[in-house]
Design a protein around this nucleic acid. Structure first.
Lengths: 152, 152
DNA sequence: GGCATTTATTTGCGCACACAAGTATCCTAG
DNA sequence: CTAGGATACTTGTGTGCGCAAATAAATGCC
């Protein structure tokens, strides 16, 4: 297995990448904290707001968020306790629970979204040219496709 | 505060990015699991191996790894218990502890590194052109600089 | 129709980490 | 040389999440 070391360019890309991700994630999270939301909470609200009837089955939501079933259960517990989301039983299949956006949840998302978008710009996209943004989309489309293709 | 929504290109970049990062992180972690290492453990070994005398002060290591002091203490506990790292008291300043690579730790890193490099290639760099890799380095250098510049 | 299998969710448990407080040590001003 | 503050690390506590097991319900096979 002739595993070449990373080239200088590759090393530079990799190091800058991993160093950025963590910092950026923390920054985005603390920007959202003023709304009483975590990044994870926000993602739930976005997914639900985009869904038909503003609700999703737990398992579909877990998949979309790349979360384990139990992880989603717990994350939802928090959102339910603050009234942003509610659990709705499915009449057609009594195994499934829907996570459904409440009016409060919709309002909270509307309140936080502009700030979050500004945050993404500020923390991530700010200094990049339109060409770089396009390239970034291409690159991570490749990466994403690559990752889902190679399961193991 | 005229916060424009994300353009289609920006949205595409952002979504592909966040969707990739989590999956890639998990993949890299599970690639390392066969060596009994977590990604965090591996990072510790790399940093120590690159340091003078293969040792670093805890606080410097914590900063390098973007970890809280307590987080590093606990992470090191694991590595010490498996014998890959040891704590060494500093004679000059009795407050500080060095984290020092052991022979076992050096060997473990040498064993895991080629596989990890292959993993980074396979999970991340695989489908990218050299031009894209260079661009990636540029982009995340901008992002990283941007993030450290804007503390709040 | 009845039983094994698959699917959906929650609960028990453990791990990794952050924050705050505690302890030890060093540094600086007077 | 001593008091106050800064610095380095660890410990107490709580949170978020994954894995495995438990529960419940649907589905498929005979």
């Amino acid at each position: 297995m002739p595993t070449a070391w990373l080239s200088p360019n590759e090393m530079r890309a990799w190091r800058n990448f991993i160093e950025s991700v963590n910092t950026m994630w923390n920054a985005l999270g603390s920007d959202l904290a003023s709304f009483g939301l975590t990044l994870g909470d926000y993602e739930v609200l976005v997914r639900l707001s985009e869904a038909d009837d503003e609700q999703l089955r737990m398992c579909d939501l877990a998949t979309a968020l790349q979360l384990s079933p139990s992880g989603l259960t717990r994350r939802l517990d928090g959102l339910v306790s603050t009234g942003l989301v509610e659990r709705v039983a499915c009449p057609a299949d009594r195994r499934v629970m829907f996570a459904a956006l409440t009016g409060t949840g919709r309002a909270k998302l509307a309140e936080a979204a502009p700030e979050h978008v500004a945050s993404v710009r500020n923390r991530f996209l700010k200094g990049l040219t339109p060409g770089q943004v396009r390239e970034l989309g291409d690159i991570f489309e490749t990466v994403r496709t690559n990752l889902t293709a190679a399961p193991q």
